[in-house]
Design a protein around this nucleic acid. Structure first.
Lengths: 214, 214
DNA sequence: AATTAAATACCGACTGGTTGGTATGTATTC
DNA sequence: GAATACATACCAACCAGTCGGTATTTAATT
């Protein structure tokens, strides 16, 4: 269906609106009507593209993976030679994204899965896909850094990759609880700082040896 | 209002039901009617004790602070002499609590604040109180451990205390996304393991790290 | 190139059930 | 007797989802 380029379809407008509205109000509190008026489309358009509200939730999670995936692919840190540098640059990049108001830098799938993990299995799965596929890219660099240093710790590359996502998701919750924009950003950023320090330490200190970090 | 001891009032029954139902379905998706039937009381009882649904949300957050506060006060790790041991024992205790099904070990206020931070300021504030007051108890031990070792790092005791809460909240989100009970618990526990390792490393004070001259 | 058929992309009024909340009543406690 | 602690019936607004209709695009046929 090649439409006029630059002209967004109703489906795209609805998905864009979903990212904003759901991150602001949550999934359950977001009504189909509100989504439609935010997107500037009618209810008929909504139910033409999505069988029901849950199917929009799944599509929104997938769309989120696309949008954020493109953001991280375009990020500059992939060029670095040392895999550990790439990991740390990723963390720095995540910290740099903590800007503006809370609904703008928080994670759609982290928000949605909290509300739907028991009541909407298809949405839960879509959110899990989004998180784990993102973590998998990081896991590759973590494994490379471990191999390069000959590290064989009692934790896996996967667990550390998921841990980074846990810290970020938790930082978002702290920011939401804080409320005010500036202090919320600060609190989230400090958690990311701790995460960065952990990664430095855990890669710097194989049993016994000490190494101060730059 | 001293009633027959052992006989729960409608208010208590509603608050107990709120902890379970809201953690399972989220705040917005939990209807007043459902709360009442889960608690075995009528709607009249609900609106006798709470002006509106949001006021129950606030009361539930406060109640959550009471219940969990009592849990941690009774925990055995307070006896330890070394403040760092107390911190690590706290983390171990949090890890030990990761048992059973997801709605049973996840956090009420972390769930609620995600949905309400923009739409219900009073609930957001109650959730913030709950998180920060809990973190404050940990912060005291962290500060004591820092003082004992003469550590003057570029992070504050408060930021590390909040970071522990971020990791836990993030671990809950990962567990919710994972779905299946066993693997969900495992993923959350591994994040707590990383947190414990970070605290050990950051207090290990290797040569080259900042130390005060006192 | 013109005509037609069929699929796609909407539109917006409508529906039946659910929602948070109210009004009015009564039984019990202080 | 007055406040507290419920109970029940009720309501207007809102909810997700439906349905018949129309405009537009694509494909097939002539």
């Amino acid at each position: 269906m090649p439409m006029l380029p630059g002209k967004k379809t109703s489906k795209e407008k609805l998905l864009d609106a979903a990212l904003t509205v759901i991150r602001t109000k949550g999934y359950s509190a977001t009504s189909v009507d509100e989504l439609c008026s935010a997107a500037g489309v009618t209810k008929g358009a909504f139910f033409h593209h999505f069988k029901n509200k849950d199917e929009l939730g799944v599509a929104a999670a997938d769309y989120w993976s696309e949008v954020t995936g493109a953001l991280f692919v375009d990020a500059p840190y992939h060029d670095l030679d040392d895999p550990l540098d790439r990991i740390l640059a990723y963390v720095d990049f995540r910290k740099a994204l903590l800007q503006g108001r809370v609904p703008e830098f928080t994670c759609l799938v982290g928000t949605m899965v909290q509300e739907t993990y028991e009541t909407a299995p298809s949405i839960r799965e879509a959110c899990q896909r989004s998180i784990t596929s993102h973590a998998a890219k990081l896991e590759a660099d973590i494994q490379a850094a471990m191999d390069q240093r000959g590290l064989t710790p009692d934790w896996s590359a996967r667990s550390l990759a998921l841990h980074t996502q846990a810290v970020l998701q938790g930082a978002f919750i702290l920011a939401k609880a804080e409320g005010g924009a500036d202090s919320a950003v600060e609190i989230a950023a400090e958690s990311v700082d701790h995460l960065r320090r952990y990664i430095e330490l855990v890669f710097a200190a194989p049993a016994g040896s000490t190494r101060s970090t730059a």
